[in-house]
């Protein structure tokens, strides 16, 4: 019986490494802020600093600064409006994005 030419012993088998990404959280390179049609604006005078906007943001785009105030990270905010809708004191207003 002729030996198949392409058959290799098991120890010589090479497995190709699939798609491996070595840099965790690297989507931060992708600024999704460009998707925005509506822009949220926090009225700091009205804000009671409850953090509901921070907790409910699907894009991790509400941040707390050193003063303890919440602010929007416009690099990633997609303008979904959840923060404005959930705000208990209506301190966040959605404006039309001007580009």
């Amino acid at each position: 019986m002729a030996k198949k030419e392409n058959s290799k012993p098991a120890e010589k088998m090479v497995f190709n490494v699939g798609a491996v990404i070595y840099e965790p959280g690297s989507t931060i390179k992708n600024k999704t802020g460009g998707w925005r049609a509506m822009k949220p604006k926090i009225d700091q005078a009205k804000c009671i600093k409850c953090g509901i906007c921070w907790a409910n943001c699907p894009d991790m785009s509400v941040k707390k600064n050193e003063k303890g105030e919440f602010e929007i990270d416009y690099d990633y905010c997609k303008g979904c409006g959840i923060c404005a809708n959930e705000c208990p004191v209506k301190a966040i207003l959605m404006e039309i994005e001007k580009k």
């Binding site: 989507t27 931060i28 992708n30 699907p58 894009d59 785009s61 959840i82």
Partner: peptide
């Protein structure tokens, strides 16, 4: 979970 992901706006 890092921002910059491609989920739609308002993704639950």
């Amino acid at each position: 979970f890092a921002p910059g992901h491609r989920a739609c706006a308002g993704c639950g």
